[in-house]
Design a protein around this nucleic acid. Sequence first.
DNA 1: GTAATTGCAAAGGCTTTGCGGGCAT
DNA 2: ATGCCCGCAAAGCCTTTGCAATTAC
Lengths: 165, 165
Amino acid sequence: MTQSRIEKACIDQGLKMTGQRRTIARVLSEATDHPDVEELYRRALVIDAKISIATVYRTVRLLEERGILERRDFGGGRSRYDPTDRGHHYHLIDVDNGKVIEFKDPGVEAAIAKIAERLGFDLVGKRLELYGRKTAGEQARPATRGRAAAAGAAPRPAQDRGRAV
Amino acid sequence: MTQSRIEKACIDQGLKMTGQRRTIARVLSEATDHPDVEELYRRALVIDAKISIATVYRTVRLLEERGILERRDFGGGRSRYDPTDRGHHYHLIDVDNGKVIEFKDPGVEAAIAKIAERLGFDLVGKRLELYGRKTAGEQARPATRGRAAAAGAAPRPAQDRGRAV
DNA sequence: GTAATTGCAAAGGCTTTGCGGGCAT
DNA sequence: ATGCCCGCAAAGCCTTTGCAATTAC
């Protein structure tokens, strides 16, 4: 079995590679969405039936501190994770199905830089999230919700009344 | 005693005005920052020494549902509240002291609209937050931290390792 | 060999909620 | 009068943590 993308990043960072970390690294490497810890745990369980969720929490935190992961908060009370090596991008969340679309845009980039300068600040971080629904005409059928769709696309948990915009 | 700005909004919404709601409405009307529930509770206690924090939670939630307040999440695990009648704006958080600066900008506004159109979405919400520090030269002295500064400007709680960007 | 890591379960922080009594309309 | 609201304390949810056993280097 070849070494996963994130595992390589861990090794580059000099992290001690345990079986659990390798498992989590693999799950993260294979993900194309923005899973939360619970979902990472579920996926990890498939590979290692006795991994603990505490380990998942500890690992994502470690990876975040090492700059391998970025923690995101799309509302809903749970943090979601995004491998840094996917490059800088923003997110558009489809409110009908929770799907997250990534995008870049030099226009906003420029506008943001100008704002920071105008206000006299050096940016250390920025967050831009758009929430919307497909424009009528190409409206997606709000998928029949038998079982919650693959997480990362899951409808918001009860705790969330709407979203903090 | 004249009726506060937020109290008027509550009445317009047909809400039953209890003493506690009037208190919270007043606190919200007088705030110029983005307090969290704990801070609202502290301020409300000055006016009504026996108000309960549960009531504050219930009230901000109600006001949010009625569109009188907007819930914001600047990281740190607590929601912060922003009266809707202040108008649409974005936020720049000074990472050195937690202060929140509000701003508007037609440039980003336009860029965002263009992005939504390009992706084929109708926006129902958006979030833009910038995190930065004052540009060197006009660098603010990182205030001596005896007691936590007025909340809404409080340094992030321990739970927060950095910020979900 | 030794310091770091893991699993488990308990604890923590923020928020919600069940319940009996009280209050606005 | 009565349905909504309040305070209290307990519970819920996500996340962290203490501890003893285990593991990577």
